[in-house]
Design a protein around this nucleic acid. Structure first.
Lengths: 305, 305
DNA sequence: CAATTTAGTTGACGCAGTCAACTAAATGCA
DNA sequence: TGCATTTAGTTGACTGCGTCAACTAAATTG
């Protein structure tokens, strides 16, 4: 794509999104707030104790205009201001109880707006849209820091997501064929079918509502646990998520009284191997195979708990 | 209902992009046009011969306001209007030579703005940003005509996608629990593991690169084929995709010499049932079950080929 | 300690954008 | 066919969003 076509497409998108945001913001019409009011209230409500200058800077407002809006907010009992002891020219702005209620009401409305829009989309499409937003943000917003990752138990659809992402990853990176997806689907399906919450678990790492990682522990019998399907999406590498997931598994296995944790992996997965070494696993055997097309080096690792 | 974290992330992006567009639009300040002026001039300049109503609709403007702006544009010699012979109430708006110059000047400025922004990015990053914009646009712009659906064989990740989307659908709509995802994962995994291309097949319906439907045929032995995991995403309903997928299965089974096509479904899936009736299946048995939590009515259907 | 910068406020005001009421052509309906 | 309703566009009247300039007071610079 040529430079100029790229720019024209971006402009086209900007025109579209100007319209789109305009539509969303119509929602503020039936509240006593203008869009600017709402943006200011949001900023004060979510970052307690901001100063007027920081609002001017972050929201690109006119100081005079902001001053008047804050005056009105004070008069309506939405915010309170107190001079900043560190700089008496500056003032610290906080929301009152009433202000917080309004702030939360606005949030609910904005959420409902977007939820309504997302509801018209196909399964998986909201995730795709939000992922694309993240891409744009990361590129165009120099100050953007990605949402923190959280780790949670699996729920509906997650096992399917694991199968899908593992399969795509190994196919694209190493040219593995569909026999691999078959294996993953079988492992994952058996895990769900025989799921024993007392001795097994599945962790999903999620960031901003998007799944970015997974691992599961299954009961191998005889006091032996198996760590399976460790995966971290490339958009979330380098954050230590892999280590976090493995640590979680080890903690779980110790707590449940397993004596040993085993895993099978392939040697080209260097980041994963580094994690296993660091967490105390030792390599016990190795064998070449062609289970999924290209030749690979399968490895068995064991951690004595 | 979409996940709350997704929505919050989208809102966060919208706040960011409101700011971003605000910055870009500051560029119009040193031209004689307001942002609205510029949007209107752009629309007229790029779609020759628009009417006022279409501008009102596309740009979400007030008719009174637009009328005044057009009056000014006419006075300044930027546009000309002539009554539409097909509807004398309506008028056809075109740019004059002067208007075109201004339009192009605005375009150059907007391009320069974006080019300046892109210049700060790394190689390949502008392309990534524009690709992400395209994704968002395709998903959120209702006027963006949806790509036509195509039907193809499965490839890496598709089986995982089937598991994920089926599970989410039945969980959200009917409150089924994870035993259902376990069953789907098992069925899908076995399909892949024992896949016999001569007698079995998986069709994926895809639109604009996004999966929207699926069905598979497995060999039940003794000349009997089984139709399984028929699914059409809510975003692609009413297009006849379900019928298309089932027709595809029947055609395939006839060609491979099967004598009978069987399927198992549940009676609350009315659209699916209608398709089975229309394609000649007949209901042979029915039993209540609680396999996945809530009570449901399982049905066996058969088509003699 | 004087000069300059920064945080915030107030006065004055333009004009972007809205709402209601209107004309004229087109369409619906009996 | 004729009457009622809808649609395209215009005009009058007005609100209040947002801007600019001038100011005070505290902090910083040199």
């Amino acid at each position: 794509m040529s430079d100029i076509a790229l720019i024209e497409t971006a402009r086209d998108f900007n025109r579209f999104y100007t319209n789109f945001l305009g539509l969303l913001n119509k929602a503020y019409l039936d509240s006593p707030f203008t869009l600017t009011d709402a943006r200011i209230l949001f900023e004060i409500g979510s970052h307690a104790g901001v100063s007027a200058v920081s609002l001017v800077r972050d929201l690109h407002l006119d100081p005079a205009y902001l001053s008047r809006i804050l005056k009105r907010f004070r008069a309506e009992g939405l915010v309170e201001t107190s001079p900043d002891p560190a700089d008496l020219r500056s003032q610290i702005i906080t929301v009152t109880e009433r202000g917080r209620e309004q702030f939360e009401e606005l949030g609910r409305r904005a959420n409902a707006q977007i939820a309504a829009r997302f509801d018209t989309l196909a399964r998986g499409e909201p995730e795709a849209a939000v992922r694309a937003m993240g891409t744009i943000r990361a590129l165009l917003d120099p100050t953007a820091k990605p949402a923190p990752a959280i780790i949670r138990a699996h729920r509906a659809g997650d096992i399917g997501w694991i199968v899908q992402s593992q399969s795509r990853f190994y196919t694209e990176e190493y040219g593995w064929d569909l026999r691999f997806e078959a294996l993953v689907a079988e492992v994952a399906g058996k895990f769900l079918a025989n799921f024993d919450p007392a001795l097994e678990y599945c962790w999903i790492a999620e960031r901003g509502g998007i799944n970015v990682g997974s691992v599961l522990v299954t009961n191998g019998g005889g006091g032996i646990a198996k760590l399976r399907l460790l995966y971290v999406d490339k958009s979330a590498r380098g954050l230590g998520l892999g280590k976090l997931l493995v640590d979680e598994c080890i903690r779980f296995c110790r707590q449940k009284g397993y004596s040993e944790l085993q895993l099978w992996t392939n040697d080209m997965l260097e980041t994963a191997r580094a994690i296993y070494v660091k967490t105390g696993f030792r390599l016990v055997s190795e064998e070449r195979h062609r289970m999924f097309g290209p030749e690979a080096n399968g490895q068995n690792w064991v951690l004595t708990l």
